[in-house]
Design a protein around this nucleic acid. Structure first.
Length: 686
DNA sequence: TACAAATCTAAGGCGTCCGC
DNA sequence: GCGGACGCCTTAGATTTGTA
């Protein structure tokens, strides 16, 4: 057995399919149709909730008689208790009414009790339930067994759920119940009362079954010692507070019942390579660095499970927006460990008093990756504990500079209107019990499950293009909230007039920007300075913060104009040139890095020849060493080597020295050959 | 010790974006 | 339109936990 098994309930679905349930109600639907929807929904919910419950199925009013007690018109359709499955669902979907109008629903109940008694023997069900769907419109053969049924239901602690006709209060004045039906309802009502069961109409039942139920499993504990320094260890346990709902997972299955075998083939060119001959590698620039399994093992960071406090900081240093991860944990003192509760409580109390949080290094298990997190002290219902929320490492952070919105100046009326709208739709003041959104279900999960059910039951039919009304409701604000905000919404509509703007293509935009000159000469363009300021320059000014690979020359000049330190932009330019040569794809070509290098040399000639000379010397070494001699040849051709004393007074390099620099000495070319050999060897190994 | 459930991790598949 | 880079999602496998 598992450590703590899921609850496993044995459920008998007892459904009336006799003649009396074939009649259509005022809403145009027969009782059987409603029974179908209801029973089907019960099974669907169980399938998707991954519950361990098992079902059997009994029809009352069937043309067949198939039960151990030989009661007429009672058919045990599914004897063995089986997990909820699509076959069961199809059996329910295919239910048809019969012309039998003398089936006894009490007989059906007795057969169901008998089934639970005998078919659950030796199996570890945690509870037993009968779900009965009938309109009780047939005359009972005998009421002799009534007391026995009640006694057995009580004795076996069977839960009884009866879904029947709407109560008289919910019926319209035109709808009436027959005498037999009224007597039947009184009788079943008595049974339900006696066994403390549940009885409801379809409307109520369906409202509870509309959405797929959430299965609340028991969170798995994570035991660890909270370490403070070298000597203090507090035994704690972590439980997930919340985690994202996982959607259905897809498995590749053949519908033709021939198994799908997934096969992976490794190819080098057109030739197949054995998996054993394939090893992983990392691509550094154009160089593949192979990493074998052994290398990987020796490179792996070996860690031990831990939850180590590495420091404390003021709570305001851990603002909400830097919290990361997709789940949070409770960290509570370990149960039954003496002193753990006292220690955690003391720590939490002190941190609350000084408004601080603890920063921890958390390793889930041996050799798993260390994570950074914040332990946020919390007190709820007189219990002191921590919330653990993951924090980002430095390299996880992205600094996004967005253009200023200062150009947008809303009027005071517009500001007030938005203010009112926020007040009217404010959910923060709603009582938690009345908050319609506190238990909001995930519409994506609901919709996907609905669609899977449709496809499973009707594989050839098309999926509906319209969303189910229940899903639509999940996506809408509640009507009462919209009503409350109706005045504010009207104000917003009036004050923020929307205009349709024709979407201009980039080319069209450019044509507008660079208006053709009045000369009519097609080759001349006239730049409209006002437009330019509002568009390209504006955008560039607000966004260029460092030199990128898209327009390195433009970025360099812009940053220089903005007064960035010359050394800093030279450094960035050098990095970009290296990136364009060594790590970009071949498609980049040599034009862009060459243009960037030319500009850098021109600028350094005036400002700092030493910076350029130092860079070009090490750049030459790298080019030769990595086998980029073609690009070096272009540098030689274009005379982009060392800046000489003739070109700049600050340079100490003579023209002769500059000429010698263009030659590659034997040692360098030897190392190049070596590199090529090594690369060939490595490729052979691959 | 075996087992089931919860949890985490790495690898591979796939879709989107962007530069050429 | 193509292909590389990147990120998200799924899946399989590993680890941990607690009970029978």
């Amino acid at each position: 057995m598992s450590r703590q098994s899921k609850p496993m309930e044995a459920v008998v679905l007892l459904i009336d399919i006799g003649e009396p349930v074939s009649h259509e109600d005022k809403d145009g639907q027969s009782f059987l149709l409603k029974s179908k929807q209801c029973a089907s929904r019960i099974i669907q919910r169980k399938i998707f909730s991954d519950a361990a419950d098992q079902f059997s199925l009994i029809f009352v009013g069937s043309n067949k008689t198939d039960n151990d007690m030989d009661y007429p018109h009672i058919e045990v359709k599914q004897r063995w208790f089986v997990p909820p499955n699509w076959d069961l669902l199809r059996a329910i979907e295919n239910m048809k009414t019969t012309d039998v109008n003398s089936a006894d629903w009490l007989d059906g109940l007795i057969v169901a009790v008998n089934l639970l008694k005998h078919e659950t023997e030796g199996r570890k069900f945690t509870s037993q339930k009968i779900v009965m769907l009938s309109n009780f419109a047939t005359r009972l053969r005998s009421k002799d067994h009534l007391e026995d049924v009640i006694a057995t239901l009580k004795e076996m602690k069977i839960k009884l759920v009866v879904i029947g006709p709407e109560s008289d209060d919910d019926l319209s004045s035109e709808e009436t119940k027959s005498n037999i039906q009224q007597k039947g309802e009184v009788l079943i009502g008595r049974i339900v009362d006696e066994v403390d069961g549940v009885m409801c109409g379809f409307a109520e039942a369906m409202s509870q079954l509309d959405h797929f139920q959430k299965f609340i499993g028991r969170a798995a504990p994570w035991h660890c010692d909270l370490e403070i320094g070298e000597d203090i260890f507090i035994p704690v346990t972590g439980y997930k507070k919340f985690a994202p709902k996982k959607l259905l997972t897809w498995k590749k299955k053949s519908i033709e019942k021939t198994p799908i075998i997934q096969e992976t083939v490794f190819l080098q060119g057109d030739e197949e390579v054995e998996k054993s001959e394939v090893i992983n590698g990392h691509l550094f620039g154009q160089t593949v660095v192979p990493i074998s399994g052994d290398d990987k093992t020796s490179m792996a960071l070996t860690t031990q499970k831990c939850c180590q406090i590495i420091g404390f900081t003021k709570k305001q240093n851990v603002p909400r927006h830097i919290l990361v991860g997709d789940s949070a944990q409770y960290i509570v003192p370990r149960n039954e460990i003496e002193g753990a509760k006292i220690a955690v409580t003391a720590l939490v109390k002190v941190l609350l008093e000084v408004d601080m949080v603890a920063i921890v290094r958390k390793v889930y298990c041996k050799n798993s990756a260390p994570k950074l997190g914040a332990l946020i002290p919390t007190c709820e219902d007189a219990s002191y504990f921590f919330y653990h929320v993951p924090l980002p490492f430095a390299e996880d952070e992205r600094v996004v500079r967005l253009p200023s919105l200062s150009k947008v100046q809303p009027s005071q009326d517009q500001l007030d209107a938005v203010d009112h709208l926020i007040d009217d739709m404010d959910l923060t003041q709603i009582d938690e019990d009345e908050d319609p959104y506190s238990q909001l279900l995930n519409p994506a999960v609901e919709h996907l499950n609905n669609m899977v059910v449709l496809k499973a039951l009707h594989p050839d039919s098309k999926l509906p293009s319209e969303l189910n009304i229940n899903i639509k409701n999940l996506l809408q604000p509640k009507p009462e909230i919209l009503e409350n905000a109706s005045t504010s919404l009207d104000n917003i509509r009036t004050l923020f007039q929307l205009e349709e703007i024709e979407q201009k293509s980039y080319r069209k935009g450019a044509a507008d920007l660079f208006k053709r000159g009045s000369t009519g000469n097609d080759t001349e363009v006239e730049v409209n300075p006002e437009n330019l300021a509002d568009s390209i320059v504006g955008i560039v000014q607000s966004t260029v913060t460092e030199i990128g690979t898209v327009d390195p020359e433009g970025d360099f000049l812009k940053l220089k104009e903005l007064g960035e330190p010359f050394g800093k932009i030279c450094d960035q330019m050098q990095k970009v040139i290296r990136k364009l040569i060594f790590t970009s794809s071949n498609a980049v070509g040599t034009r862009k890095p060459l243009a960037a290098l030319t500009l850098l040399r021109e600028q350094c000639k005036k400002m700092s020849p030493l910076t350029y000379n130092s860079f070009v010397a090490s750049f030459k070494d790298d080019l030769v060493e990595r086998g980029y001699s073609d690009f070096w040849e272009i540098i030689v051709q274009d005379k982009l080597g060392l800046i000489t004393s003739v070109e700049s007074e600050e340079s100490t390099v003579s023209p002769d020295e500059a000429d010698t620099f263009y030659q590659i000495n034997k040692c360098e070319s030897l190392s190049e050959q070596n590199y090529e050999m090594e690369a060939e060897d490595m490729l052979d190994m691959l």
